[in-house]
């Protein structure tokens, strides 16, 4: 394994944000995992800014060679309360038969804005999971783009957004199924309080030669206040005929029957709401394999809902 600083690499794009990133970036990391290597403990990546009015472009490259496995935890943190804008771009190359889990904990200060793009290029028999947990930041836009270039690839995305005040979080995903016998799963859960707003846009493209594809997408949302909102948009473009593709979107409130059930067991209404909210999100959280990340997200969720949730038994 090698870890080093910023390196320049190509990103063919006509996306202006990525072009901005390419022309201005001087910071970032480069990580290569050697062939046949299983990295036991997760690699933690911290982007810290201490300057007043931070305007940063980070550019990162991860290359995972054949048969390697690795997990990441990434956080972008502003250490003072001044405004901050981060444009983060990560390219992940997954060679044959690799396994990668990338966890993003987005809990920056309330003056922070983030545009985060990850482009994943997958070869045959590779699995890539990206989990995005959004708790903080005033504006967050995530772009996850997967390109499946070989047989039997799997791309998994789990997302949990818990937003309050005037927060806005936007998850754009794109899976490009270019090869046959591949799978993609997306599970995004949104919990919106106060005046917060969520966007989910999930695009799935199945190319003509990509037969036997399973593509599953769900976006479930809880609106916990009158003034919160969500725009949810699935976009399916399917050019092959032997494809299983499903998408579903729900927008709702907490279930009154479940709430009454809990209260009838002596659980106070606020706690009951928090437990149900947690339960709503937990399906996506449970897919994360790094225990510390799971625990942290439970804690942050409880914090946002202003309750103590104790899940140690």
């Amino acid at each position: 394994m090698s870890i080093s600083g910023f390196s320049e690499f190509e990103s063919n794009t006509n996306d202006s944000i990525l072009n901005l990133n390419k022309s201005l970036s001087q910071n970032g990391f480069t990580i290569s995992i050697d062939k046949n290597t299983v990295v036991e403990s997760p690699i933690e990546i911290l982007f810290i800014s201490t300057t007043e009015t931070n305007f940063s472009q980070y550019r990162n490259l991860i290359s995972i060679a054949e048969n390697a496995e690795v997990k990441f935890v990434e956080r972008i943190q502003n250490l003072n309360n001044s405004s901050s804008f981060v444009n983060n771009f990560t390219r992940i190359n997954c060679d044959k038969n690799t396994k990668i889990e990338y966890n993003k904990i987005q809990n920056n200060t309330s003056e922070s804005q983030l545009i985060d793009t990850v482009n994943v290029y997958q070869e045959q028999d590779s699995t890539c999971d990206i989990n995005t947990l959004i708790f903080g930041g005033s504006f967050t836009r995530n772009n996850l783009n997967f390109e499946q270039n070989g047989f039997n690839c799997e791309s998994n995305m789990n997302g949990v957004s818990v937003l309050d005040n005037n927060q806005l979080a936007d998850n754009h995903t794109f899976v490009d199924h270019k090869s046959a016998n591949c799978r993609s799963n997306e599970m995004y859960k949104g919990i919106y309080l106060d005046n917060s707003k969520g966007v989910f846009n999930g695009k799935i493209m199945v190319r003509p030669d990509a037969q036997k594809i399973d593509a599953f997408q769900s976006n479930n949302n809880l609106l916990l206040s009158e003034n919160s909102s969500i725009d949810s948009k699935p976009q399916l473009e399917i050019y092959a005929d032997d494809v299983k593709c499903s998408h579903g979107c729900t927008i709702g409130q907490l279930d009154d029957d479940a709430l009454f059930y809990m209260r009838s067991r002596g659980i106070g209404i606020e706690e009951a709401k928090a437990v149900l909210t947690y339960a709503f999100a937990s399906e996506a959280i449970e897919n994360i394999s790094v225990d510390q990340v799971k625990l942290l997200s439970k804690k942050l969720l409880a914090q946002k809902l202003n309750v103590e949730l104790d899940f140690s038994v």
Binding site: G268, E271, L276, Y278, V313
Partner: peptide, 25 residues
């Protein structure tokens, strides 16, 4: 009240549910 139609609560284990209930009470 033992419910005629007990409610399903996905995402909360029986032990966590009971623990929360007992500690709240």
């Amino acid at each position: 009240l033992s419910f005629q139609y007990p409610v399903e609560i996905p995402g909360i284990s029986v032990s966590n549910f009971i623990k929360t209930s007992i500690s709240e009470q």
